[in-house]
Design a protein around this nucleic acid. Sequence first.
DNA 1: GAATAGCCATACAAATATGTATACCCGATC
DNA 2: GATCGGGTATACATATTTGTATGGCTATTC
Lengths: 299, 299
Amino acid sequence: MAIPYEQLDWNALKAFLIAAREGSFSKAANQLGVTQPTLSRQIFNLESELNVTLFERLSTGLKLTDAGSRLLDFVAPMAPTAQNFSLAVAGLTESLEGEVSLSVSEIDALFRLPELIEFIHQQAPSIQLTIHVSNKASNLKQRDADIALRSFRPSEPDLIAKKLTDEPIWFYGTPNYLAKYGHPTQREQIQTMQIIGFERKLTLINHLNSLEWPVAESNFNLVTSFQGLQWELVKRGLALGFFPQAIGDQEPSLTKAFFPLGPVMVLPLWLVTHRELRTSPRINRVFQLISEWFIKKQS
Amino acid sequence: MAIPYEQLDWNALKAFLIAAREGSFSKAANQLGVTQPTLSRQIFNLESELNVTLFERLSTGLKLTDAGSRLLDFVAPMAPTAQNFSLAVAGLTESLEGEVSLSVSEIDALFRLPELIEFIHQQAPSIQLTIHVSNKASNLKQRDADIALRSFRPSEPDLIAKKLTDEPIWFYGTPNYLAKYGHPTQREQIQTMQIIGFERKLTLINHLNSLEWPVAESNFNLVTSFQGLQWELVKRGLALGFFPQAIGDQEPSLTKAFFPLGPVMVLPLWLVTHRELRTSPRINRVFQLISEWFIKKQS
DNA sequence: GAATAGCCATACAAATATGTATACCCGATC
DNA sequence: GATCGGGTATACATATTTGTATGGCTATTC
């Protein structure tokens, strides 16, 4: 009855292979990084377990038994397999080629990624980028993506995070829309205006109220979570919208509203990745390139 | 730089394989015959050594990383190899087919083996017998043969020995040769007779002297170590010869000399084998058959 | 023949691995 | 929402393995 391979001591099989190759416990022990008595005991234990004498011990070294010779042929292929595994490990940990997945919000995908991807591709052309676009927080722990841009600090202790910037978020509108309301500069003036809303608008309303913006549901007649549509509706002069300053200021048809009051809020932008940053040169490289790009953009 | 396969922990590779297959440390631990914390630590150590994260740990179990998936493909072939090895072990320890080598002296080869081999072949036809004929003691430890018939007890502690019989050794001669010397019955009468000598005849002379046979070099004018020729020369009436009683009595043309004085000496006959008797069904079987044959021959 | 080097096996002390117990997390069910 | 079952990680006690030191054997060299 054959012992299941799960129950076999694979290190003892390795020891058998090396001892047979070297013809000596002393020499094989050197190769294995153990001492001769240890190896002697390991082979003895293997022989006991298998109920087969693998070697005769001579004072001049080892002599394979017939059984030993025969079994050696069966176990020998494990060595090249293990070596191929080790080469694959080295290839994985040392190579800059391969795929890195990046998770970003819709607005970042529309306004930042074109330029950022061009930058990354110039710096590391062998890296394949896969972009996941979602406004939901990517689950990096479950490997939805390797790297994410997020506007909140990650709470998972396993993730690695770097803060890229603090982004002012302003109300933006067309000059015509703002002229229609007299170029408002007081918070109370917002009560007669429209703001593009998200799906969870009660949360948004409460949050703006806590920031002392006296808004109500009547200010949110247009609701969409798709940030690209928000952008287009604001550009058509239908309502105000919230946008990061770095993005809003790039659009000539939009201008900040309530300018003397400053930004509505400030959101952090975090670059997040999972533990593999420490072992994957590719992920590490992309992480660094994104970081550099934001630094450049701020200077 | 790839780690040499000798330095890899093959049991950890096995653990990786099984954990990936089961998708759970708890289940894999069961398969491996260890506990979950042990397996958890083993994989942690492997990840540290390889500098690669193989699994993400979820409270619902394990999720292979990209790296883990990729490396799994490289290490997977080790499992069938190990299983083939285990099957080969089982085949070796359980099979009655295969070769057994037997070492015997010339005289046994000539007079006993024909009948013994026929008996063994009838009882175990799948076993291949290889017969080594030599008057030198076979070195069983060095695997010159699996089993030996010897007229002295083995001194090597590693060998397994069974005493088959105590063989009387007689002087034999033709009736004509004995009549020529008056059918001798006194030890002194041997001084005028010829005895077939071995190559080391001084040792033989000393030994016979110690047994109170008054012989000298002049009694050994014919010397050969080839036992078959000794036999033929004695049958031609040229001299006396020493033969085991069981063999000498089978030859009608020969008769015991000095019969009232009894055998010249008594030599034991041992059946010897190496440790593999305990693990090889074939060797065990041949050992037993030989033993049985001698028992039958004596009754 | 004596000395030396190389080899394997064994006893005892030290180091390492493993098992037990426990805490925490998540998902499913009631 | 509370409970249960399944899962992983960690601390501490226990068991096992390994290293060090030593002895015995053989082959080679002087």
